[in-house]
Design a protein around this nucleic acid. Sequence first.
RNA 1: GGGCGCGUAGCUCAGCGGUAGAGCACUGUCUUGACAUGGCAGUGGCCACAGGUUCGAUCCCUGUCGCGCCCA
Length: 892
Amino acid sequence: MLDKTYDPKEIEARRYPEWEKAGAFRAHPESPKQPYCIVIPPPNVTGSLHMGHALDNTLQDVLIRWRRMKGDDVLWQPGTDHAGIATQMVVVRNLEQEGIGLAVEGAVKGDANKKLLNREEFLAKVWEWKAYSGGTITSQLRRLGASCDWSRERFTMDEGLSRSVLKVFVDLYKAGLIYKDNRLVNWDPKMLTAISDLEVESREVKGHLWYFKYPIDGSDEHIIVATTRPETMLGDTGIAVHPDDPKWKHLIGKHAILPLVGRRIAIVADEYSDPEKGSGAVKITPAHDFNDFEVGRRHQLDAINIFDKFARVNENAPEKYRGLDRFDARKKIVAEMEELGLVEKIEPHAHAVPYGDRGGVPVEPYLTEQWYADAKKLAEAPIAAARDGRVKFVPERGRDDFFRWMESIEPWCVSRQLWWGHQIPAWYGPDKKVFVALSEEEAKAEARAHYGKDVALERDPDVLDTWFSSALWPFSTLGWPDKTPELAKYYPTSVLVTAPDILFFWVARMMMMGMQFMGDVPFRTVYLHGLVTDEKGQKMSKSKGNVIDPLELIDKYGADALRFTMTSLAAPQAGRLRLATSKVEGSRNFATKLWNATRFAEMNGAALPEGFDPASAKLTVNKWMLGELARANLAIDKALTEFRLNEAANTLYEFIWGVVCDWYVELTKPILQGADGPEKDETRAVTAFVLRETVKLLHPVMPFITEELWDKLGHRAHHGALIGQPWPVPTAVDAAADAEMGWLVKLIQDIRSARAELNVPAGAKLKLLVIGGNDTTKGRLETHRAAIERLARIEGVEAATSAPKASLQLVIGEATYALPVGEVIDLKAESARLQKEIKKLADEIGKIDSKLGNAAFVSRAPEEVVEEQRERRSQAEQTKVRLSTALERLGG
RNA sequence: GGGCGCGUAGCUCAGCGGUAGAGCACUGUCUUGACAUGGCAGUGGCCACAGGUUCGAUCCCUGUCGCGCCCA
């Protein structure tokens, strides 16, 4: 006997290890079954599960479990990402608390006693940290129920994947697709590394707009430039004005003298400057602004780098500013300009400032030499693949975003000045000649060939952008560059499930690398889901304090409840998924509901006889139930095929709660609790059958409770675990049974509704008189008498020729039903109720008449639509007439 | 400023040209032998606004207003 309520905690803790031990998650590359593969978006190895993971992995697991039951050979490839900058930052912060720093060249000298770690020592600490916290996220994924093939777990810095990374770098270098270049990068002066455009987030900042006067050379005139960053004036090498700007046009070709510095700088005409903005003249600092860099290049202006890597003023600036932090330099410069009377005005100004998303400080556009991948070239094949449909996007608009990004792509800066990551396989000779090779030995051999002797080589200290290794994930995890059976079978993978915020970071780069090294797309479909936010639609963040911890929800409501909630929220077009705990609570209640329906079945001896054939069912209610099951089955398959996981969840909810519990269980109570016999046997069998199929259909979304119920229902003993069962095949729907049950449900609902409206005491049992019922109706009333009596609180069903005066009257189809209520009834209320019904019908008839009265409608609308309207009109008319008769009778 | 998306019940959202839906909240009622984490019955909508296409528009198109997100 099942307990009264479902206890997720105990069951989840038991079921998961059971599956894992039994090898239920294992892929079978050797099997002839069709492959279905998803690679997990690898979470940060030292991270922990947040709501985004919960959503993403729930959706993946739903698909994976469904396809597994469908009979595919399923591989859900798990693993974690070393997350270079994020992990390094965490470890640095931890070390700082112990008073340990990094021995970074040029660092500010603080406490002389501070212990400083060199690269090797630091990396040892990171690996230590990984060993300590690396299991957290995977154990949390297990708690969610994720059925990954853990025997194949990978890590972006494990030996195999590192080998893939080296090979890709070397091959791309040899193909000319990776090169060194001196360009402006986004420099993070806190992390001391270049970061990519994608790692920059712009924040709205309330700053100022300073209007500075620069004297014109050989004149008393000044030109006024407006800037949000006064400190960069130390690197100004020009001033741009719009060629048609009447205010400054006359100065084009002249020169200004840069205050504080004394440099003579050119005034050039460039459409970049907007006469409407600021003063209309823009100071140009090519080395510290991306737009200025372009302007500078157009007009051959020098690019003078005025900062060091900490964003302190360097030796290219006048001595008195050297060593100042950029913000201190700003204050000093503004003060001095004011003293010189060169500040025209200062306006408050809100503008976007680029921040490093990790370091959290404003990034500095900075001129450095870095390694770049030729993204433009690499993007060609992915663009073509997306265009010709080799890769599909769900929802489709993801494809447009993809194109927009890919078609305007900039060189990808792949080097990072960090220690944690894949060190770039490049070695430099004494003359700085570079040798790129898979190993130091190979590099040495190349160097020997080049120099004609052995020379000392120095390895490039930089590491690769984290996304470089994750770009290889769909094939590196399958064993590439070796030709493994896994690679042959599972590549291209079936679908990639992820949030759109890493479409460019990750999806685009996997496409590039997949096309380049595998010659095919990495996945057939990209399924992009929305972002989980709090109830108010706010992004969850620690600083806002609105973070909901998925594990707390699992603890409180169970993993299945969280999974069901996530699935039902995941409408493909929804950008934001607002998570309210009330929803999770509702999902928990849903689990309880199913649990209790099963408990009811168990109490009533539901059992599946050997070789039971659902097609053999004879009772209408059972035939109808089986048809509803088939309908749900079809709808779920369709929804999952189309990645409308929310619809699958909603179908399950409505089917289990609205059909099975609300109607089937209630309708069959009289049979199950009545006399023994073939009807009871059949109903017990169908109940057991429906529950068995239901737990299968629900399993992908709620794996724990369904596995438990499957076991409790006794199927596990015969067929093994639910996770490995074949997916149900829908049977036929019996239209006649459908019609009959539709009638029955309406009869019961109408009686209940009338009773409630007339305040008939809930406990009062009424007689049901049938007036004008045809033989079909009479037969149905007899068939379902017990159910009607129970569910509508009726005692006795009889034929009659007319309704007694004091009675409730209903019209369904050709028959009128009267429920004599004697003293209880309020005649006025009943009269009002009937009149309301009549008015509703009259309104409907009026609407239909205006349609049918429209000649264009009758001639142009499809025949069946017109016919349907006529049919509805006729039904409404008949019902209205009968209700009017009933009303007259009442009025007497 | 450019691109994209969204405005449907009090709230959160489904709705794929032909009878406006769900969950939560709310009201009334019921401790009926599965379930009060429940049952039954209800209340509540000019489907943002204005045009257009169509026999017919919540749905397709255009514009306006409001709100988000991404990119400058």
